[in-house]
């Protein structure tokens, strides 16, 4: 059973860069672990830390004004490598939601399999959200999975987002795909006999 996802009310971290690939989310040299823990400290490592290990003050994660469980990111977030370590790093850091105008396919699956909700909004809405959050870091968003809506907490803007009903159910109830896959074992064996 995984962590259930229902609603999130949080400030956002705005990372206004396009095509953020999974090598930036978690560089390959951190992929040597054989477990899933501890990746959060190396999230965006090459942007977040200088080569001497000190924090890079210019990077948004090191700006104390920006905190929260929601990451706002430029289009095509999570492109590149299939490494699920990227999702583990994002979850490990404490993000529960990533909002962008679109996501790379493998990353989107990996996020959903780790109870991270990837929310797609239009390019215009994304641009508006970046402006709002950058001008006021205290801007809060309400994410409601049951009604599939994302709302600015001053109610000045709200929009619905897509998620397929199966994945929504999995997130709401904390189910995972493997339980489902195995429940069809007889169908799998029948398929094999026909093949």
């Amino acid at each position: 059973m995984k962590e259930k996802f229902i609603t999130i009310h949080s400030t956002c971290v705005p990372l206004e860069i396009e095509n953020i690939d999974t090598d930036q989310i978690i560089p390959a040299r951190f992929l040597k672990a054989t477990d899933k823990i501890g990746f959060g400290k190396n999230l965006f490592a090459d942007w977040r830390y200088q080569s001497n290990g000190e924090e890079n003050k210019d990077f948004i994660l090191n700006n104390p004004a920006y905190k929260g469980a929601i990451l706002l990111a430029g289009k095509n977030f999570g492109c590149g490598s299939s490494r699920e370590h990227a999702a583990w790093a994002i979850a490990g850091y404490g993000f529960r939601v990533v909002i962008s105008s679109y996501f790379a396919d493998i990353f989107r699956n990996n996020a959903l399999n780790n109870s991270i909700l990837p929310i797609i909004v239009s390019e215009d809405d994304l641009s508006m959200l970046f402006d709002k959050v950058k001008s006021n870091p205290a801007t809060q968003l309400q994410i409601d999975l049951p009604s599939q809506t994302v709302t600015l907490s001053d109610n000045s803007w709200s929009c619905s987002f897509e998620i397929n009903p199966y994945k929504k159910e999995c997130l709401l109830k904390g189910y995972d795909d493997i339980d489902f896959a195995l429940s069809n074992r007889l169908l799998i064996e029948e398929w094999e006999k026909k093949a």
Binding site: S82, N110, I178
Partner: peptide
């Protein structure tokens, strides 16, 4: 196609 580790487990 490429998959993540949860999918490898599946």
């Amino acid at each position: 196609f490429g998959i993540g580790t949860s999918e490898v487990e599946m």
